[in-house]
Design a binder for these strands. Structure first.
Lengths: 239, 239
DNA sequence: ATAATAAACCTGTATATACAACATGTCAAC
DNA sequence: GTTGACATGTTGTATATACAGGTTTATTAT
């Protein structure tokens, strides 16, 4: 339970304190030296934790003043980051339901949304329909590469595949590349999402990689356009 | 010209070497100690530069092995990060043209896309049409708050407002919150973007802040859905 | 030959120190 | 009263050291 990493533990503690309004929006965190005394660590360790808060949009550091708590996390993060549906569901309490439509082992065919590099590879294909407040909202289609995850139990597809990967299999999910486009809905999608003809859908295609940079999951998420909302926090890179 | 910050200079040097394939995709960067010798710096300074490469998706660090150069930046970044249209245009050479439709001083009205907190404030309103390959693609609507930027010359609106803000006015643009939705196009938009009725558009609304956390720009970018593409690089946050 | 061990190299974490740069309040000089 | 100099507290940068933990290669023992 206790975290291995000091600075990650401090980061998480600060996040919960910010989200629980113990440190309020618009106010400043204790100074780095104060925090280092509070947590019994060096200032550098505190700075690593704060760096994490910074890149995730929790604070803005202002030289000579301190770390300002931002009012940004009030936003909801429907697609941003790498967050599983289960985690979103829990954090937003959005009354969602998941229906597993397909769960089959197959070789990845050409012409699918998967990249060329994995065509012909063995994978578990999962198709799921997500309903929010009993309304169909998203179709999730996943290829899980079998050389990394040999088999995906039905109960896992119904529940949370990320929890299974990380906590049962010990995989370290690290990063993903996501591409968002707007496309016309094909008849299958129209029917599943209960939308009229000519209606467009938002398609989020992503490739997810492990800590050692092995590709292990390819996903296509098809959203009803009227229910789609994506919030991004971005920092400007100095030139 | 010479950068003040050692680690930022190293970061930029590594970025250009990666984008110019001096360090090739799939290969490893020199080790941290080697880099520190190369750049005449301490290992910690190198690590700060690498941390920047990591969060921006250029490399993946693998413990015991090294910093792997990722094949991710091949993607195009049409909306991601805080990048001005001018910068995108230059980096992608996308043959774009900008037409300034409006440039007026006004007070921000209620019912606009700007948040409540700035309604009634003085601002410069800029409306621009972006054409790519002579096709209308995006409508940009900006409120630039007058208490920070008193006036925006026409030539600047035509060229690059970010360059003006940063290099002429010395403003430090720091972060932005962006929200992406899909909405039906109103008749004005339909006409400007030359799209049929019932067609949807992608709307990116953003608030941009300075280093001291003052809000200074509110933007609404309306994209033709068929030309819209958004690529995100995301890292998973450990729980 | 094979397997275990050791060495060498890599990144990850934690600490300590020093100084630069910015913000703010205090106090003296004018 | 205003200004200016200074002290203090804050974050930013750069350096150095030590050890933990993972990877690879070489060596040694069997």
């Amino acid at each position: 339970m206790t975290n291995q990493n000091k600075y990650l533990g401090i980061y998480q503690d600060l996040v919960t304190k910010i989200t629980h309004n113990i440190y309020e929006t618009g106010s400043y965190l204790p100074s780095e030296t104060q925090l280092s005394e509070l947590y019994g660590s060096s200032r550098e360790t505190i700075r690593k934790a704060l760096q994490n808060l910074l890149t995730n949009g929790y604070i803005q550091k202002i030289r000579g003043k301190g770390s300002l708590v931002l009012d940004v996390k009030r936003f909801v993060f429907p697609v941003s980051g790498i967050t599983s549906y289960k985690e979103l569901d829990e954090s937003l309490q959005m009354e969602s339901e998941t229906r597993v439509l397909q769960l089959v082992d197959m070789t990845i065919p050409t012409g699918s949304f998967a990249p060329e590099s994995v065509v012909g590879d063995q994978a578990t294909f999962i198709e799921r329909l997500r309903l929010v407040k009993n309304e169909p909202s998203v179709i999730d289609r996943d290829y899980i590469l079998s050389n990394i995850v040999p088999t995906v139990p039905m109960a896992v597809a119904q529940d949370s595949i990320y929890d299974y990967f990380e906590n049962k299999l010990g995989l370290e999910i690290s990063y993903a590349v996501k591409k968002i486009t707007v496309e016309p809905a094909d008849p299958t999608v129209q029917k599943l999402l209960d939308i009229p003809e000519t209606e467009s859908v938002v398609v989020v295609r992503s490739e997810t990689y492990l800590q050692d940079s092995r590709l292990f999951q390819i996903t296509e998420a098809i959203h009803r356009a009227d229910r789609f909302s994506f919030v991004e926090f971005a920092r400007r890179i100095k030139k």
